[in-house]
Design a binder for these strands. Structure first.
Lengths: 173, 173
DNA sequence: CCATATTTTCAATAAATACTGAAAAATCAA
DNA sequence: TTGATTTTTCAGTATTTATTGAAAATATGG
């Protein structure tokens, strides 16, 4: 019979590997998603070398992706007294994770779209032709909708976990 | 002075090109996003050859991406009487576009995540060690949250545009 | 200041993804 | 059934993105 320790290792490895594969779908690179998965399921903070060993990746790769995760706010640098090396630990609260990802996606996906739509709408304002009017109208429709989504994203992200859950439950029960 | 027709062409080209660039961020390939942008801002349905000419892409590329957009439901095939070729036209309603994209993202991003989380949680159920319990707990937390997001996505997608807007407005005003 | 540990950078390379173009298959009208 | 038109497929190629590994830069303790 397999020991609990071995089973846990298997489960964690599966999680890390598959979360990494999912990362691609999310527009996050595989290694970044794997490191995040690893740290989310590790109690003690890890060093760069431990991450390298665990995922069998190069130092450069580990370093770049750790820094990127820190920049997102999904992991933190931990300093241990008497230790020269840096340690990394993940934010584990799901609502925090969600709001961080939502904020990042808004920045990358929603805001640039708004900029484009606004510019295209402005440049075609007051056009006389049927074609021009139709284009302008379509740009405005998209702009309104994306702008609305942007505001919704802000509102939801700024809520506390409990409140959001409560609200949603009431709404849809 | 530039004619309105010329200005419109410039605006549309900018939209197509930049919407395509945005597509990458969204996990949609550039050409697919460009074709979608082109058809969203064109009144009359276009043939494969017109799309090829407009975007300066190969037949294979145009064909594949048109079919993919049809599979998503973002564009439709139109048959004109007396015409042997197929024409394509885009869904222009923003709420429709949103629900289609939301459904597709749920399928690609949320459902596979749920499967992974559920399996990892099940495989570590009842573990005795501190580490095992912590892992199991983290998987459950993530599973609950993602499951909740999945339900929310369904509910919102099934609403009519007006209703969703009204609801959201009331909520956040 | 020196020796050593650690972090950071980045050119070269590998891997993944998208695109082309031409051939094959399917469709249609006569 | 034939020949012309249109759609579909896909091997080869190009482009983009991710990763390596080693050198350079930085930080630390003595």
């Amino acid at each position: 019979m397999e020991s609990e320790v071995a089973k846990l290792k298997t489960a964690r490895d599966a999680f890390v590997s598959q979360w990494g594969a999912l990362g691609s779908q999310w527009g996050i690179n595989r290694t970044m998603a794997q490191i995040h998965a690893l740290l989310m399921t590790t109690n003690d903070p890890l060093t760069t070398d431990e991450v390298m060993d665990e995922l069998e990746i190069s130092r450069g790769n580990a370093h770049m992706n750790l820094k990127e995760l820190v920049a997102w706010g999904l992991i933190r640098v931990v300093v241990k007294k008497g230790e020269r090396r840096e340690f990394f630990e993940a934010e584990k609260d799901v609502w925090q994770i969600f709001t961080i990802v939502a904020r990042e996606r808004k920045k990358r996906e929603i805001e640039p779209a708004l900029t484009i739509l606004n510019r295209c709408a402005e440049e075609t304002r007051g056009m006389q032709s049927q074609e021009g009017k139709a284009f302008h109208h379509q740009m405005r429709e998209l702009e309104d909708f994306v702008g609305f989504a942007s505001k919704m994203s802000d509102k939801v992200s700024s809520m506390k976990h409990g409140l959001a859950l409560q609200l949603a439950t009431k709404l849809f029960s």
